[in-house]
Computed example of a mutant assay.
Amino acid sequence: MPPEEAVSLALPGAGSRLSLVVHGDRDRCISRQLRERGIWEPFETALVRAALLPGGVFVDVGANLGYFTVLAADGVGAEGRVYAFEPDPDNARLLRANVRRNGFDARVAVVEAGLAATDSTGQLFLSPDNLGDHQLFAAGEARRQVPVRLLHGADYLATRVTRMDMLKVDTQGFEYEVMLGLLPLLRTLPAPPRILIELTPLSLRQAGSSGRRLVELLAGLGQPLWIVDHIEHVLAPTSAAELARWCDNVDGCAGDAGFMNILVGPSPL
């Protein structure tokens, strides 16, 4: 399939009016699922769609080719705003193309950068066959590298947003650094955003942090915690202690790459 060909999204209640340009056959993950099914992570998709209303603000950290960016831009409408951060130049090109093809340029700011705890530069280690699995750290594999820009999230967004309805963070192990940089802003907002975030203890540890540290940082926001059960399509209530113990157990098994998505904040369903 040529990389410039687009697929229509098959979203419940949205018809086929949204479409995305996808990666070519080299990508075995997100683009393959979109070609075959027209949808990615159906339950997470439902959560994002339920959480956003016209006029809302969505921040997408690790936007990849723009699946959740486009969903969010559709949900927040012409009066809303989406900030999409993607450090990989090839992914950012597709991200911009997908925002444009759906007519969302006026409501989406595409930022070709990653978020971190400080403004800096970094190296992005590229996966050859899962183009959503690029990493901002070396994990011992032989991967091609590209230099990327990193931004302190709170500093960048402080003059741009006065509210944040939902924050999605999927950065392949760099989530602790992202959240550390965003916390000063989140603590000043009139209401905390819902946060949809990946929790992968192995990748977090490889990046120099840990699952426990990320859980404890998120728990400091004082919001409900949920495990996103994408098999049963339910939100399972949990606690910081339970999540931290799970992270410790995963860390205790060498090479265990177990992961889950968690939601911080009230259930939108």
Score class of each variant (00 low, 15 high):
99 V>K: 06
18 L>F: 10
66 G>A: 03
29 C>P: 00
38 G>K: 13
195 I>F: 03
200 T>W: 07
101 R>H: 08
82 V>A: 03
71 L>K: 08
1 M>R: 10
160 R>E: 01
141 E>L: 13
152 H>I: 00
55 G>R: 01
162 T>Y: 05
100 R>V: 02
166 M>R: 12
129 D>S: 12
84 A>I: 04
88 D>R: 08
132 G>M: 14
133 D>V: 07
105 D>H: 00
251 D>V: 11
76 V>N: 11
253 C>Y: 06
246 W>I: 09
147 P>G: 06
115 L>C: 14
105 D>S: 14
32 R>Y: 01
205 R>L: 12
43 F>H: 14
190 P>L: 05
145 Q>H: 07
175 E>K: 04
196 L>A: 00
50 A>N: 05
206 Q>P: 02
241 A>Y: 09
96 R>P: 00
115 L>Q: 13
142 A>C: 03
9 L>N: 04
193 P>W: 09
32 R>M: 11
177 E>I: 00
106 A>Q: 15
223 Q>C: 12
167 L>T: 08
153 G>C: 07
22 V>Q: 02
24 G>P: 10
208 G>T: 10
236 A>Q: 08
244 A>K: 03
36 E>K: 09
61 V>S: 01
214 L>F: 13
234 V>T: 14
200 T>H: 11
95 L>G: 10
14 A>S: 04
152 H>E: 13
82 V>I: 09
246 W>K: 02
103 G>V: 07
220 G>M: 11
217 L>I: 02
191 A>P: 00
205 R>D: 06
239 S>T: 15
154 A>I: 04
148 V>G: 01
50 A>M: 02
190 P>M: 06
10 A>E: 13
263 L>I: 02
90 D>S: 08
